[in-house]
Design a protein around this nucleic acid. Sequence first.
DNA 1: GTCTATAGAACGATAGAC
DNA 2: GTCTATCGTTCTATAGAC
Lengths: 182, 182
Amino acid sequence: MQAAIRLLAQRGYRGTSLAAVAAEVEMSQPGLLHHFPSKERLLLAVLEERDREDHQRVAGTLAGDGIRPALEAVVRHNQTARELVRLFTVLVGESVAEGHPAHDYFVDRYQRIREELVAKLRRLQADGEVREDADVEALAPVILAVMDGLQVQWLLDPRIDMALSFEAFTAVLWRQLAAPAG
Amino acid sequence: MQAAIRLLAQRGYRGTSLAAVAAEVEMSQPGLLHHFPSKERLLLAVLEERDREDHQRVAGTLAGDGIRPALEAVVRHNQTARELVRLFTVLVGESVAEGHPAHDYFVDRYQRIREELVAKLRRLQADGEVREDADVEALAPVILAVMDGLQVQWLLDPRIDMALSFEAFTAVLWRQLAAPAG
DNA sequence: GTCTATAGAACGATAGAC
DNA sequence: GTCTATCGTTCTATAGAC
């Protein structure tokens, strides 16, 4: 499974062969297909595995600190996990094509995360920590977009400082969200 | 070439066969390879073609209006060009892997666009339209990230309103950039 | 400039022995 | 549970006729 993650991150789903994954764990290709009934199921197993681990890690920070520190912590953590970031970036790009095995997975994933983010921002509005007239439905996709987009640029050029840029963004955004009026 | 764009956008580089492109223009696959010496060269030809057209279109808006209206116009235009947006999103995702035929192309492309954006923001600082203490080096990647990241979400779910979200972002950013102090 | 034919390799998946 | 063998397909690219 670790081997599959590494190879999928390097070459994507279409560029990764079952034989290559099998070789990485010193097994034959039919041997690998004994544990996963098809290449597509292997991909989905990898995605679910990653989601489970990530969700556990993030949930802790989110409960303890606020939403902004939690988001910044995710970006800082991602900067130490280049391989996993590449895994998701490569697979999301591929899956934008309809009919891709992970298409529905990512559609659901983004929708879920956006809804969670909107719900959290709404709660801050109710608590008076965020201005009532802030358009949280429009801004939630922006927050996710910044995280994803910075990952692309960072993968293409490691000199990009994701955490620095993201915190410049959150500073601008939160100063706005918390401002008293127009 | 139009056929190549359509298929590359739908299936990416690895998922697109020369035979499929050839069939789209009712030609044999070796016939296609008469015009492009290899599949890789076909990909690069498509990218250069797209870049040339896009650059012309954007240059006009950028010269006439300011930088913010130009950026917003690009996003609005992209929302009417789903196929081209998908082309770049799919190929960028794939090219994040080293050794991909378009890897160097996108590395150079992002670096160039970031530099242009930083230069333009610096000029606004010199003109007193943007605060001197704004960290334009950190914010330039954020602006590109928002555009790219919104495209991904929009491709996965067409109900996402890229223009609306992007303008919510620029509104927040510019109110900050133009603010008199602290 | 376009074709047919084909080389040469890689792929996912299955069959069946052990 | 892991293997060897192999089927059937698909792919890029080349050779060579017209």
